Amino acid sequence: MHETPEMATGRALDDLSRLLFGPLHRSDQQRWGHVYLQGLLRTHGKKTVRRMAATVTGSEATSSSLHQFVNASPWEWAPVRGRLAHWATRSLPVRSWTLAPTVLPKRGDHSPGVHQRFLPEPGRTVNCQLGLGLFLNTGQAHLPVDWRLFLPPRFLQDPAVRDRAKIPATARPQSLGDHALHLVQEMTSWTDGETAPVVADLTTLCDIAPLARRLQGSGHSFVLAIPGQTAIGGAELPPGERPSARALLARHGVRHPAGAGRGIISYETTVHGLRPSGENTRGPGRLLAEWDADAGRPGRIWLTNITDRHPAELLELARSPQGARSAVRRMGEDFGLLDFEGRSFPGWHRHMTLVSAAYTCGLLEGMSPDI
């Protein structure tokens, strides 16, 4: 499925806009939310507020109202995201909650969260913001429903910088793993406790072990990519004596045919957890990877606490980060993900909320859900 923004019908736009913005207290906020969505969907090329205003209203003068709506109008983004997530989970077959990092290149150093970061894939350092999104994997698409913005220390420790970016007093230093856990917890609150497996590949960005422990301790199922050198074993063994995940799979893994000449290898292990109370727990888990026949070793390795599904099904879930990354690319190319005009923390979150809604709206006709 590869829809274009123009495929979003007027009915889909009206219905989704009503669902998301109807509960806003002010009629002008409801109206500008609808106009902003129209602009993201119908404006070709860069989605500046001036170009969106001209496309939707025929007048560039209304751009100030759109700018005000995103950067200064006092509406909360979390309830809007919650309504989007609640609708999606009730209307679509959600297979997993996929966490996907999103690098947003920026110029200058005033945008909230902007910092220098080395990116392994292109092999270079960029000036950027780092966001983390939670996507609902429906099998047909990956729908973005929630976001977190990583804030380097200077945005939290310097009062002047913090005030200029309008970062709330409640914001505290958090690792990317902390942000990931927050996204899962918030999503759980929106779905009244109904969950789906959490899938993520954050190996180049953070230590995944604390996230795995906290998900296990909270009762969430997960499929998480881990580095091959990750030491596996209980606390009774010194770190230097614990075998690596790659060594365990290579020496003791069980092979599973997966069709089309593919093979999967798995190893039963123990997953350690940390409950919110601080109590340590443990439960059954599994290492798994697709076997790289050419290299004669496991490929990317995943740790999961799901032991009642065939490894092939789990590896299919493990591919969902690729779908989420594709969604991020399309959001940048066609839905204005990279076109935020503003330097405030609230503005960033409102823009990401609106882009998520526009992207979902652009896919509605292909999925034919009932809003």
Rank of each mutant, 00 (worst) to 15 (best):
P159W: 05
L130I: 15
W75T: 06
W87V: 12
R154S: 12
W77Q: 14
R162C: 04
L156P: 13
R81D: 05
F150P: 03
P93M: 06
T138S: 10
V126L: 05
S111V: 11
T170S: 08
P152T: 14
P120F: 04
V80D: 03
G108P: 05
P105Q: 02
Q157L: 07
R148T: 09
H142T: 15
W97N: 08
R164I: 09
P93N: 06
G139K: 01
S73A: 10
S96F: 08
R148Y: 03
F118A: 02
P152A: 09
L119P: 13
W77D: 15
L130Y: 02
L132N: 06
A171D: 14
D109C: 08
L104Q: 00
V126N: 01
E76Q: 12
H115C: 06
W97A: 10
L119G: 09
V145A: 01
H110K: 14
R107T: 15
W97Q: 09
F155Y: 12
L134Q: 07
P168R: 03
Q129M: 03
P74S: 01
P105M: 05
P144H: 01
L99I: 12
P120A: 10
R95H: 13
L99M: 05
H110Q: 14
E76A: 13
Q116M: 04
H110D: 14
G123K: 08
D158P: 14
Q140N: 11
G131P: 00
P120C: 01
Q116R: 10
H86I: 11
P101G: 02
H110R: 15
S73Q: 14
A88K: 02
H86M: 02
L92M: 07
R107K: 14
D163L: 15
T170L: 00
D146F: 04
F150K: 01
T102Y: 00
A165E: 10
P105D: 13
L136T: 07
T98H: 04
G108C: 10
R162M: 04
S96C: 12
T98Q: 00
D158Y: 09
P168V: 13
V145E: 03
G82D: 13
A88D: 06
C128W: 05
P93I: 08
G113E: 07
P105W: 07
E121Y: 05
V145R: 05
K166C: 12
A141L: 08
G139Y: 08
P144V: 09
L99R: 03
R148S: 11
L156H: 14
L104S: 00
T125Y: 09
P153C: 05
A141C: 01
R154P: 10
F135G: 05
V80W: 07
Q129E: 01
P101T: 13
Q116L: 06
W75P: 01
R95P: 08
P74T: 07
V103I: 14
S91E: 15
K106T: 04
D163R: 15
P152H: 13
R95L: 15
N137W: 11
P74I: 00
R81E: 11
P122K: 11
V161W: 05
E121H: 12
A171Q: 15
P112A: 02
W77N: 10
T125G: 02
L151C: 09
L92F: 06
P144W: 02
E76K: 08
L92P: 01
T102D: 00
A165Y: 04
P79D: 12
A85F: 02
V94E: 10
H142F: 14
L132T: 10
G131T: 03
P79H: 08
